[in-house]
Amino acid sequence: MQSKRWMMMLAMGLVCVAAVSGCKKKTAGSGSDGGIGGVTGADLNGSGLGGRPDLNATEMAGQFVPVYFDYDSAQVKESERAKVEAVAEHIKKASGVGVIVEGHCDERGSREYNLSLGERRAQGVRAYLMTLGVDAARIQTKSMGKEKPVALGHDEESWAKNRRAEFVLFK
């Protein structure tokens, strides 16, 4: 089982390298908009964001449990996967419903980098939702960086609560 996964990862890695090197001339400074979709791993897999939900769309927060992350990591941990799977199940069943994955960080480090790290966390969750079969166009990412902590302490207990991705459904 374990070795199978490693083989998969290795194969994916090779595909990435081949695709990136093959694309390089085209991408670097070509002036083209748009990405090199489908070449650098699962979370980059043909996955441009759809349009943002309308500002008047109904948003429902708090229906699902946040996913928590390790310090300075955007990896969806094994222990957190069931939370994402529950969201995937719900969205796949409900028609016309999309999800905003909202990434957050703890208070440490540069504000601008944390905004990007929060986005990476949202992107990591989005990638996992996509592997579970959720249509990429129905998943928005949003980062609040370290600007919206849920716990205000200056210790690991608070930080761990703040390193999270929240799910907001929209219709």
């Binding site: 990136v20 694309c23 390089k24 991408t27 670097a28 400074g29 070509s30 002036g31 083209s32 908009d33 748009g34 990405g35 090199i36 070449v39 650098t40 791993g41 979370d43 980059l44 955007a74 540069s110 601008e112 980098y113 905004l115 990007s116 790290l117 986005e119 990476r120 992107q123």
Partner: peptide
């Protein structure tokens, strides 16, 4: 206008 992408796609956080 249309943004021109300078960096390759990667699983990185970019900033500043």
């Amino acid at each position: 206008g249309v943004p021109m992408r300078l960096t390759d796609g990667s699983r990185a956080a970019l900033a500043s």
